[in-house]
Design a protein around this nucleic acid. Structure first.
Length: 822
RNA sequence: GCGGGAGUGGCGGAAUGGCAGACGCACCAGACUUAGGAUCUGGCGGGCAACCGUGGGGGUUCAAGUCCCUUCUCCCGCACCA
């Protein structure tokens, strides 16, 4: 008999059985050690794409492998379900965002279930449901009550297409990360979370994460952008203080002008009523008309105007002109910069254009050459023309001395500046968690009392593309009594950035249905941290930094015991077709649904794991999918043919049987190592393929005298090794072999060291590093024995051509290299 | 410009300093077949060969895809950050 590999029946059958028996459901009472495996939860767009398939296939291999290793594996799934697409769909199709989202979730859950992933579905969460966002609001209030959430008016990034403000992290090259529209600046009053309070810890604690890719840690480092320097207080003639931030305080004696950002509040003050006012305002207007992209482009020609005022350098008491330029940014440092053309190329270019003086204060030699500089000298060197500091080496000694001097004289202070800004979380949109703040004419800002949470999204709203939050169209939502004094009050009409929701979902999974708290400490104590987190590298900064920030705040509030959420991080590469990211506009999208329909989930999973190591980009190949399908068919046939054999006693262990036995054990070792040490699923699958090839070979060769015991053992281990990759076929074949229980509750097989040893090995003979021949020797031969054997070999003269042997190297089990005179 | 990663057959990709190209795809030949886009067997870097081959050039070593120096190309992230 040769029954067909009928994945269409097998896969749904086992999915149903697993769900009924609840084999993937876990709790905290197990005496096994815990293992928390998490894949980044998806936005429910409605359709699974190949990136999801890859993410969840990788996760499932690890989850199933760790379970077979004896861990109590938490492997949950949920939905990052607030966000703009739902609202845009509402505007377009007049469907309420909730309906659209919930039906998408149902669709995607169904698709996900056809993949046969070992999720504990009892823990499913959706961030858009009141029982979840109640706690997002509650957490916001914890930030608020601890001084970590505040409202301020600021120039913020505004996306004119999404009609909302954006966090700095959501602006990519001056454009909206989501829709690509050019971001504008708007002066608005918005809520911020004080992530800058945690800048140093977010930076330092990267060292606690050896299990994270260097690349991600570097990206976060760059984003935090720590730089050590000094703030030096220049003063205007009228006595106003103008602090500048610099990392080159060793060059403070070389300041020949000062620059302010056009938006700097002092600018208007200084030019008011002066003859410069009109020209300055015209320049400011010109700069502000530039888009963010142009504004921050390095291509932009440096321009500026003198504003008619002067600043006094506290160290030299020199009076230097104050300019405004298009290359100084208001939101970094103090928005004011000292101009040192001799030692900063930008400043140098600027003064060349406007004819300002250059003063050399750092020189490669002890004395200033006196020559005219043709470019800025930016390296460290000896301080010259620098008063009592002249002669010192600029860095670190000179810097340190200048800083001490400045602090002693009260001219300024050492400071550490970060590029990281506070996190703007207000969004002028409907489909998010409402910000639980009430504005009372008497009491001012009042947090919504815990008992009144959640602040539920109203449904009596209109979705019009007006640019106003739809919440404002609700006749009921905004009207509220002040919880303190009872006066008529209004609600905050904004919702929270959806990254707030995804910053704590991994905590909720530990205790998904807790109605009294976001989670119980006992449960997070048991499950945290996440032992392995898996997702796309596109979240390297945004989500991963926010989640780290949240965890640290929760830690400081005593709500969780860990200070880092994700112990190990695996960032998977993209799925490409024809070398490019799959996208609708390129028309190169391969639908997981169709692949699963045509070949089954096991084939889809095998292909996506086999085609490339997880961190690398993966090129989709229909042919290669076919190859994986063929492989599973081969597995199906060989196990079917083997299970018909009945084990006999007294089978002889001949060389062929011994070899299959050895390969079986070598494969157990290799697959285990590849999964656990390296995440090299592609090579793990290769070696499983080799085992299958070896089984066919053996059956072919052995014919009638087949050793059924060895063959059955090979088949049994084959299924165990295949189980994390192709769980349905493994389960079916496990049953076919007559085994009790689910293969997914079995222990990972162990290998016998002794079985790995070959009796004889084929070693290569090299002469001066070039291959000359082969010898079959006993595998336990020492280097010395090997040398002797080769030197006495009948082919020796043929190999060496009779040349004089100078030296000989032998590597046991591998090769012998004879070094001869040339 | 700064930071990170990668360059290996026709393709995806393998190789603790020790036989480069495992495994798979594609391709070629054969077998079985009424037929095969099923399955099985064999072949498959280049060259007639000696030999030559891991982006290029140097080096270390008995031995280099792997280590060191240098250079080129591509991808990703950040980018007037003072």
């Amino acid at each position: 008999m040769e029954l067909k590999y009928d994945f269409k029946n097998i896969e749904p059958k086992w999915q149903k059985k697993w769900a009924e028996s609840g084999i993937y459901e876990v709790d905290e009472t197990s005496d096994k050690e815990k293992y928390y495996l998490l894949e980044m939860f998806p936005y429910p767009s409605g359709k699974l794409h190949m990136g999801h398939v890859r993410n969840y296939s990788i996760g499932d291999v690890i989850a199933r492998y760790q379970a077979m290793q004896g861990f109590n594996v938490l492997h949950p799934m949920g939905w990052d379900s607030f966000g703009l697409p739902a609202e845009n769909a509402a505007i377009k199709n007049k469907v309420p965002p909730a309906d659209w989202t919930l039906s998408n979730i149902d669709n995607m859950r169904e698709q996900l279930q056809t993949m046969g992933i070992s999720y504990d579905w009892t823990r499913e969460v959706a961030t858009c449901k009141p029982d979840y966002y109640k706690w997002t609001q509650w957490l916001f209030l914890q930030f608020y009550k601890n001084g970590l959430a505040y409202k301020k008016k600021a120039y913020v990034n505004w996306c004119p297409s999404c009609n909302t403000v954006l966090a700095n992290e959501q602006v990519v090259e001056g454009a909206c990360e989501r829709c690509g529209a050019v971001v504008e600046k708007k002066d608005l009053e918005q809520w911020f979370l004080k992530i800058t309070d945690y800048a140093q810890r977010l930076l330092d604690d990267l060292e606690l994460l050896p299990g994270w890719p260097e690349k991600v840690k570097t990206m976060q480092q760059n984003w935090i952008g720590r730089s050590e320097g000094a703030e030096i207080n220049f003063t205007t003639e009228s006595g106003e203080v103008l602090p500048v931030f610099t990392t080159r305080h060793d060059t403070v004696f070389g300041v020949t002008y000062m620059v302010l950002a056009p938006e700097h509040p002092m600018v208007a003050k200084l030019v008011k009523g002066t003859p410069y006012e009109a020209e300055v305002q015209a320049f400011i207007k010109k700069v502000q008309q530039l888009s963010n992209i142009d504004r921050t482009s390095t291509e932009l020609e440096k321009e500026g105007v003198f504003i008619g005022a002067y600043a006094i350098n506290p160290l030299t008491e020199d009076k230097v002109p104050i300019w405004i330029t298009n290359y100084v940014l208001m939101d970094y440092g103090t928005g004011a910069v000292m101009g040192v053309p001799a030692h900063d190329q930008r400043d140098f270019d600027f003064v060349k254009k406007y004819g300002l003086p250059v003063k050399e204060v750092i020189s490669p030699s002890q004395k200033s050459s006196g020559e005219v500089l043709t470019a800025a000298f930016e390296e460290p060197g000896y301080m010259v023309n620098s008063g009592s500091f002249s002669g010192l080496f600029s860095s670190p000694e000179g810097k340190e001395k200048v800083a001490e001097f400045i602090e002693a004289k009260g001219f300024g202070k050492k400071v550490i500046n970060y590029r990281l800004r506070d996190w703007l979380i207000s969004r002028q949109r409907y489909w998010g968690a409402p910000i639980p703040i009430i504005y009372c004419p008497v009491c001012g800002q009042v947090p919504v009392p815990d008992a009144d949470l959640p602040v539920v999204l109203p449904t009596d709203v209109e979705f019009l593309p007006t640019g106003e939050s739809p919440l404002k169209t609700s006749p009921t939502f905004g009207k509220v009594k002040c919880p303190v004094c009872g006066a008529d009050a209004t609600r905050d009409m904004d919702t929270m950035d959806t990254f707030m929701c995804s910053s704590w979902y991994f905590l909720r999974f530990c205790d998904a249905h807790n109605a009294d708290a976001p989670w119980s400490k006992e449960k997070t104590d048991y499950w945290l941290g996440v032992d392995q987190y898996i997702g796309g590298v596109e979240h390297a900064i945004l989500h991963l930094m926010y989640a780290r920030f949240f965890t640290k705040v929760m830690h400081d509030l005593g709500l969780v015991h860990v200070s880092e959420p994700f112990t190990n991080l695996l960032t998977q590469g993209m799925v490409l077709k024809e070398g490019r990211k799959m996208s609708k506009s390129l028309g190169n999208v391969v639908s997981p649904e169709e692949i699963i329909k045509k070949y089954g989930a096991d084939t889809a999973r095998m292909f996506i794991l086999f085609a490339a190591p997880p961190e690398r980009d993966l090129e989709w190949s229909d042919d290669s999918v076919e190859g994986c399908y063929r492989f599973l068919n081969r597995v199906w046939r060989i196990v079917n043919s083997v299970c018909e054999l009945s084990p006999k006693t007294g089978d002889s262990m001949d060389a062929a049987a011994k070899e299959l036995h050895r390969i079986t054990h070598a494969t157990i070792k290799k697959v285990g190592d590849d999964i656990s040490l390296r995440f090299n699923f592609n090579t793990a699958i290769s070696s499983i393929m080799e085992l299958v090839n070896a089984m066919y070979d053996y059956k072919e060769k052995a014919g009638e005298v087949v050793n059924t015991g060895v063959l059955l053992t090979a088949a049994e281990n084959l299924i165990l090794l295949l189980a994390p990759f192709a769980p349905h076929i493994a389960e079916e074949l496990w049953q076919l072999l007559g085994k009790e229980g689910s293969v997914h509750t079995m222990s990972w097989p162990s290998f016998d060291e002794a079985a790995l040893v070959k009796d004889e090995v084929d070693i290569v003979v090299q002469v001066n590093g070039k291959n000359r021949g082969h010898v079959i020797v006993a595998s336990n031969l020492t280097a010395k024995d090997m040398e002797a054997l080769v030197l006495a070999h009948e082919n020796l003269a043929k190999w060496t051509g009779g040349a004089k042997i100078n030296k000989i190297f032998a590597i046991p089990g591998r090769l012998v290299n004879i070094v001869v005179a040339k």
